[in-house]
Structure formats: C-alpha cells, structure tokens
Computed example of a mutant assay.
Amino acid sequence: MKSLSTFLALALTLSLAFASDPSPLQDFCIGVSDPADGLYVNGKFCKDPNLAILSDFVITGLNERRPINDPIGSNVTFVNVDNLPGLNTLGLAFARADFEVNGQILPHTHPRASEILFVTEGSILAGFVTADDTGNRVFSKVLNKGDLIVFPLGMVHHAVNVGKGPAVAFGILNSQNPGMITIANTKVLGSNLQDFLASVV
C-alpha cells in the first residue's frame, strides 16, 4: 500500500511538472477594451463570438513600403492584438521590417518568444548569439530573398541590410506579447556594435 501511495504521489508530481497552458475552450477570443463586452483574457476582454466580423481577423497593407525616419535605418511595423484583435489568445504576433541600405535592427531579445525571420527583398545579415559550455557562439548568415532564419526564445539576435538596395523581412513570433529588450548600442560582447557586426559578416 505504501508503494502504491508513493507511486501515485510521484505520478501526480510528474503530471504537474509537464503541464502547459490549457487549450482554448472556444474558437477565438477577439480582444476588445470594453468590460461590458465580456470575459477578461490575456489583457483584453473577449467580444461576444456571435458579433465577430471578418475585419477582426484581417489586416491589409503589409505589402506597402514603410517610411524610414529612424537614424538606424529601419522601420518595424508590429501586428499584435492591439491592431488585429482576432490574434488575442492565439499566441502569435507578426512584424514587417523595412531597411534602407546599411539599415539595421539593433541586437535585442524576446524573453517570451521564438521568432522566424523571412526575407522577401534584398540581402540581410541576420543571426543570434547563444551561450553554452564553450562560451558565446554566434550563428549568423547573409539571407537573400526567400531565405529564413529561426531565432530561439530569449537569444540575442540582430538583422542588418548588407545589400545595395532596400530590404524587407517579415517576422513571426510565437507569443501575442513577446516582449523586446534592446541591447545597448555602445557595447555588445565587449566590443562596440559596429565591430561586432563586422565580425559576423
């Protein structure tokens, strides 16, 4: 009897250790800000599913080039539950990145998401830095139209337009709130940013 109770306690402990977020109990939860609209889930209230319309699930215009006014030469258009309410509770976010020549997205990390970066125009040097028993390792490659790279969750990653014209890439993140921590522009792995980027080309 004692061994049976030990086995049951161990089984319960293991089942709790491997638990994950529960599956949704409804098809979707369109995020709205008005508490009169329903249940509060993932930072938004859910619209009555019977009132769902197509525009809750569609965003247009991501094919259009974005103006670049940032001194680092890039513009990121982020798509999340705030501008596409049908994404609420689906665990996804999306981004379009426009680069001018030599434009870059500074090294950063997403603490709650892995990311896929897919190049649709130009040539982009992209990569990430990881740490293991042998020290820091850099995984980096020049990606051309049709290429993609995966950035594992929490890894510091970057993207730089190394081509002779504008570049465009799309990112897909597996969290509706991936977070973003930008690494300081002055020092990366003990060197300045330009030296670091030159070392991985």
Rank of each mutant, 00 (worst) to 15 (best):
K164E: 15
E115H: 07
G127A: 02
I116M: 09
F139G: 01
G171K: 11
G127I: 01
F118V: 14
H158K: 06
A113P: 07
M180I: 15
E115F: 05
F139M: 11
N185S: 13
D147N: 13
H108C: 03
L148F: 15
I172N: 08
P166W: 09
P111S: 05
S123D: 14
N174T: 08
F170M: 05
R137G: 01
A159G: 15
V138A: 06
L125P: 03
S123P: 05
I149K: 04
R112N: 12
I149Q: 07
I172C: 11
A97N: 13
I149L: 10
V129T: 12
V138P: 03
V162E: 03
A126L: 01
N192H: 05
G163Q: 04
V156I: 15
H157G: 01
V142R: 15
Q194G: 06
L197A: 00
S123L: 10
L153K: 15
F118L: 14
G171S: 13
D133W: 10
G122S: 07
G103H: 02
G146S: 07
P111H: 01
L189A: 01
R112E: 04
V101D: 09
V138F: 12
M180S: 13
G163C: 03
R112S: 08
N192R: 00
L148V: 08
T120R: 09
I105W: 11
A126V: 06
V129E: 02
G190W: 02
N185D: 13
H110Q: 11
G179I: 07
E115R: 12
A198D: 14
V168G: 06
F118S: 13
T182R: 10
G190Y: 04
A169N: 08
P178Q: 07
F151A: 00
H158P: 01
T186Y: 12
G190M: 01
R96F: 05
L153A: 12
L173P: 03
A159C: 05
V129A: 14
A159E: 12
V142G: 09
A126H: 05
K141F: 05
I183T: 13
S175G: 05
L193N: 07
K141D: 09
P107K: 00
L125N: 12
D98C: 09
R112G: 01
L197P: 00
N185F: 09
T109D: 06
A126R: 08
G190T: 00
N192Q: 01
A184N: 15
T120D: 10
K145G: 02
L197T: 00
N185H: 10
Q176L: 07
A198V: 08
I116D: 02
F151T: 03
H110Y: 05
V162G: 07
G146V: 08
N161H: 03
L143S: 11
A126M: 09
G190S: 04
I172R: 08
N192W: 00
T134G: 02
G165S: 15
H158D: 07
Q104N: 13
R96N: 06
N136C: 06
V138Q: 12
L125V: 06
D98T: 09
A159K: 09
T182S: 10
N161P: 06
S140C: 06
F170S: 06
A184T: 14
S140A: 15
A159S: 12
A113E: 01
G127C: 02
H157Y: 09
I183L: 05
K145I: 08
N144D: 11
F139Y: 13
L153N: 14
G171D: 03
S123N: 14
K187L: 08
M155R: 14
A159D: 01
L189P: 00
V160N: 03
Q104G: 04
